[in-house]
Each structure stands twice: as C-alpha cells, then as structure tokens.
Nucleic acid binder design. Structure first.
Lengths: 222, 222
DNA sequence: GTCAGCTTGTCATGGTTGTGTCACGATACG
DNA sequence: CGTATCGTGACACAACCATGACAAGCTGAC
C-alpha cells in the first residue's frame, strides 16, 4: 500500500513513517499543503493521512480540492482533541475517519486497515478460508459451523494472519502489530496467543505453522 | 440510481455529489426548498436526501408536501445532532431514515443502500427479531406481547444495534453515535444504557453480548 | 415561580475475566 | 547429546464491566 502523510511535526511524521514502513507500506511525506498537492497530483495513493493544522494553510482546503477533483482516495484526518469544530467540518467535507492526537500507533493502524477494507471490499467483510470463516466485524470465528467468540488479542492476531495468508510473520513483527509502542511485552506473549488461536482452530483445515527461528505462517491444507 | 440532494451548504453538497457520482449514481442538487420542489416535480428520483435547515424554510414542509402528493420516493433526512429530538416528527412525516451530521460518508452510503433495499421489498418500519419487535418510529418495544416504552437514549442505542445485528460496536463508536461531539460523555454512560436496555430485553430471545475489550453485539439465540 | 416526576450521566464499589509472565517440558537441529 | 527455540498449564494482576445510588436537568402543570 502507498500512503501519503501530510504532517508538519517532523518527529511525529518520522515515527508514523517508520511504523508504516515496518508494515510494508510505502509512505510519502509532505510537510506543507503545497507539497501535498504536488504529491497527490504526481502519484496514486491508497490512503492519505492528513493533519489539519499546517503552516501554509488549513488541511480543509486540501481536502476540498482533493474531493473536488473527483478523487476517491480515502482520507483519515489527524486532529488535536481541542479542534472539535474542525473535526466536524472535516467529516462533512468527506474525510473517511479521524484520529485524535495524541494517538496510539496501534489504533492508527487499525483505523487505516478499517478504512481500506471498507473502501476496497465494500460490504464483504468476512474472510473465508477452507472450512473456516472469520468475521472481524462481528468478532467471531466459524469453524465447521460452530461459532467461536474470540477475545480481543486473539482477534487482532488472527486478523493480521488472515489478511496476509502464506506470509511469514516474525514474532518481533507480530509484537509490533499487536501491541502499542510503550507496551513492553515479551515475545513469549506471541507464542502464547498462537497457542490459544491454534486451540480455536482445532479440527479445521487451517493451521498456523511454526517456522523455527523465522516466525509463523497461516496455511490452508489442500 | 438517481438521487435528489437538498442541501444549502455548498461544500458539503459538492462532497456528497462527488462521492455518490463515484458510486455511479446520478445526483441532482437543490439548495433551496423551492428548487427542490421543482426538481421533484420534473423528474422521478429513487431517493431524496434532505437537509432540514434551509434558508427558505423548513425541510419538514417539503417532506409533508412530498408525501401529501402520494409520492413514494424514500427520503433520508440529514440533521444536526442537536436536532435529534425532531427525529420522531421527521419519521412521522414520512422520512425513511435520518443521518446526523457530521456523518461518515461510508455510513451515508450504507443507509442509502439499506433504505433502497427496504423500499424494494415493500416498506415496513418496525424491526422484528425473535420474539422482540422494535418500532423506532413509535419508540417502543414489544417483548412477548408486552409493550415497553423506551426512553430517548435507549431508543437510539437499540436502533443502532438493531440496524447492524451481529456487528460489534466499541464503546467509543457508540459514544460517537449517541452523543454530539461537544457533549463530553464518559464511556461508562454506554455501559449504563446497555444495562438498562438489557433489563428491558429480559426474558426475550434477544440479548446484548459483551465482548470484553471490544464492545457490544446484539445476538439472537437460535 | 416552583414543585413533582421523569430522564440522564456520573460515581464508587465489587465482581469478573482477559492478559502477559513464569517455569518447565517438549521439540528441532547441529 | 547439548543448546536454542517453541509450547503450554498455571497464576496473579490489572483492566474491564455491571450496577445501585445519586444529583443535575428538563418538562409541564398549576
């Protein structure tokens, strides 16, 4: 995925960039509206993250211009909590979601995924794989017709694995995905959750394979 | 599909138009009641999106007139959150649904689809689910034949849950849905309302399930 | 005005459970 | 056989949730 980040606070921008890069996304960064316009005109983006307080103008003008150009790229607005009225007009102008600063990176990532999923797969939210059906919106899993309610972390882990089946995730990467930055969590936690998920998937034709020293991968037996 | 949008805020109107156009719909835009009447008389629309605060009068008058003319075109009302108390009168006058500003465009699209679908298969305003019948227009609930009057907030909460059964709503999202932005309301309020709703639903085969750390979901026991 | 009655959000408390760690056993691999 | 890596049952704690009580608001009647 290719993101455009419009944010004048350099440190924050750098943090977001590195986080997103870790997820395998490509991020272009603009610190000014004028830059942002140039970037947007030059390339196709899957998602735009837009701060509204910028040195050379209001993010609104960018958003307005963006939508006026019949551009359908989803936009997530980054806003301070105090700028309430701005937030309102942003949504009215066609933003797809908003995140209030300061935000948790895990939350931003979740919002991004949600917006992208909503935008791409339209109504199709549940993921099918063999005799397993996973519904992240409903928060449950169906294995051979039996409904299993997943807990928060299990859900998030499965979501990550399901969205990139066949891809290997290192434990380090999974920790990054599941926990926020300041949560200091051992990698053993991931092992525990993998174990719990495996229990839920027992009897299905989907399994989480261990690749010693590398990580985990979701496989579907043929 | 052909939509008529009645909205005096030009920026918002433009944003909605471009969004809808991207979905392949044709949208006519009226900024005044008088214009709207002309449009409505001139053409057949599949759906009307109606703002109620308009410079030359109240959208209600348009709605009344529209229905008086035996016109069956579904209408979705766009209203500010503070005007939610008007909702009953809007629905009484024949609106099919309402969306509070500011709204998420994805939500507006979903509401449009829902209304059109509902309209295709003959109109029914009340929602049935197991031995529970919910009438959002009348504001009451029938559980096993017993009529229960709901209070305003309980009503809105149940409406949100009923319109997307099986979907998990985080408390954050529910706060967003039920309260306006400048109401600074704790998430505990949602817990309280869930509790109150559960009391009303006692003895029915519909229940609000708690998904710890995730939110709430309306379930129907089989 | 004011008083009663109803709605609504907050608070404090207590119960429940999801979560991450630990310790130890199992397994892969050189 | 030794070591690094992974699996897992048990556990303690913190986070989360339910709920009764309460106070502030609102409404309408008089």
């Amino acid at each position: 995925m290719k993101y455009l980040l419009v944010e004048d606070n350099i440190e924050l921008a750098r943090a977001i960039c590195s986080r997103m890069s870790l997820d395998g996304h490509l991020v272009d960064h603009a610190a000014l509206i004028s830059e942002a316009v140039d970037y947007a005109n030059a390339g196709e983006y899957d998602l735009i993250l837009l701060d509204i307080m910028l040195p050379d103008g209001d993010g609104r003008s960018f958003l307005k211009q963006h939508r006026a150009g019949k551009n359908n790229t989803p936009v997530i607005v980054l806003t301070a909590r105090s700028q309430v009225s701005d937030r309102i007009s942003m949504l009215d102008l066609g933003a797809d979601d908003y995140v209030t600063k300061p935000f948790d990176h895990a939350e931003l990532q979740a919002r991004c995924r949600a917006v992208l999923r909503r935008n791409a797969g339209s109504a199709q939210s549940s993921i099918q794989m063999g005799n397993v059906e996973f519904d992240p919106v409903g928060g449950h899993l169906t294995v051979k017709g039996n409904v299993i309610n997943l807990r928060n972390r299990e859900l998030r882990l499965l979501e990550v694995l399901m969205n990139a089946r066949g891809q290997v995730f290192s434990k380090h990467k999974l920790v990054d995905r599941l926990f926020s930055y300041d949560d200091d969590v051992s990698e053993n936690a991931v092992e525990v959750y993998i174990g719990r998920l495996r229990k839920h998937l027992d009897g299905s034709d989907v399994q989480i394979k261990t690749l010693r020293g590398l990580g985990y991968r979701l496989d579907h037996d043929a």
